Amino acid sequence: MSTFNGTGVAVITPFHPNGEVDFGGLEAVINHIIGGGVEYVVSLGTTGESATLNKDEKKQVWKRTVEFNNGRVPLVAGIGGNNTYEVLRAIEEFDTTGYSAILSVSPYYSKPTQEGIYQHYKAIAEKSPLPVILYNVPSRTGSTISAETTLRLAHDFKNIIATKEASGSFDIFNQIMRDKPADFKLISGDDPVTLPMMAMGCSGVISVIANAVPKVMSDMVRLCLKGDFATAQPLHYSTIEFTRLMFAEGNPGGVKEALKQLGVCGNTVRLPLVGVSRSTADQIGIQLKQLA
């Protein structure tokens, strides 16, 4: 599916200072990132603070995202969790209108075996009316989807079309790229390793920093897709310090601060997250001026 070649953005969920969802801010962010040339948008992934939204809020965010997007780019909905049956129920209740796929994070906290992870995704694949993108992020889940499990799922279920890989393991990346089905996509889940992953044949990135600097990231990824790594490298290097700052005091606190300084939306996050320190905010401002 060429739909998921290029730059996807794990879009933030803006909040008013009182903690309520800021839908005006969400519209502004979506316009900002689409205006920056990205290929698709992921709603309510980790960066969208999905863990702190209730069911009704999620439904409203997904619905309004479709409205604000207005058919401009493909949309992906983040629907995952560590209770398989609750995930299946959420998928069953999900209004697929306007969405092209589901991104589902590997079960967290429970630390299932590889067979447990396989059975979890098997159940999702059999239930989902949309294609499924796996999401391997051991730093958050406490367990890793092995390359063998990813490949088993990719070969066994045609509607499991890709994996967002945020393990940082090039051993896993190598195995997936070598043994995957031809139409299965490896997608970078970490901004800093996108360029080297694309040199291996990965199809792009689901980015955090592209919330704030969509043009820089999408330009770099498109150059990589063309095989022009020499021109892409300066763009890659230009984002290194900015990316470090985005995660220095937790995601999405950093990128929300960047968006506030850009005048796109506010920087409020929901507890247990807190905003970045003044020192980090000042450094973010310096980097934004250099990337502008």
Results as ranks from 00 to 15, higher is better:
Met1Val: 08
Thr3Ser: 09
Gly6Ala: 11
Gly8Pro: 06
Ala10Tyr: 07
Ala10Gly: 09
Pro14Gly: 11
Pro17Met: 00
Gly19Tyr: 07
Gly24Gln: 11
Ile30Tyr: 01
Ile30Gly: 03
Asn31Trp: 00
His32Ile: 12
Val38Ala: 02
Tyr40Glu: 05
Ser43Phe: 01
Thr46Phe: 06
Lys55Phe: 11
Asp56Cys: 06
Lys63Leu: 07
Arg64Asp: 03
Thr65Gln: 03
Thr65Arg: 03
Asn70Asp: 15
Gly71Val: 12
Arg72Gly: 08
Arg72Ile: 11
Leu75Gly: 05
Val76Cys: 01
Gly78Gln: 05
Asn83Lys: 13
Asn83Leu: 13
Val87Glu: 05
Ile91Asp: 05
Glu92Gly: 10
Asp95Thr: 03
Asp95Gly: 10
Thr97Lys: 14
Tyr99Arg: 12
Ala101Ser: 13
Ile102Trp: 07
Leu103Cys: 02
Tyr109Ser: 12
Lys111Trp: 06
Pro112Met: 10
Ala125Gln: 08
Glu126Ser: 10
Ser128Val: 09
Pro131Gly: 00
Pro131Gln: 07
Ile133Phe: 04
Leu134Ser: 07
Leu134His: 06
Tyr135His: 06
Val137Thr: 03
Arg140Thr: 08
Ser143Thr: 15
Thr144Pro: 10
Glu148Gln: 15
Ile160Lys: 09
Phe170Gln: 04
Phe170Asp: 04
Asp171Gln: 13
Met177Arg: 07
Met177Pro: 08
Arg178Ile: 09
Asp179Asn: 13
Lys180Glu: 09
Leu186Trp: 04
Gly189Ser: 10
Pro196Met: 08
Met198Phe: 11
Cys202Met: 12
Cys202Ala: 14
Cys202Gly: 10
Val205Ala: 11
Val208Pro: 06
Val208Thr: 13
Ile209Asp: 05
Asn211Asp: 08
Val213Cys: 11
Pro214Val: 10
Ser218Tyr: 01
Asp219Thr: 15
Asp219Gln: 14
Val221His: 00
Cys224Asn: 04
Leu225Pro: 02
Ala232Leu: 05
Phe242His: 06
Arg244His: 15
Arg244Gln: 14
Phe247Arg: 02
Gly263Ile: 03
Gly263Asn: 00
Arg270Trp: 02
Ser279Cys: 00
Thr280Val: 14
Leu288Thr: 01
Ala292Glu: 13
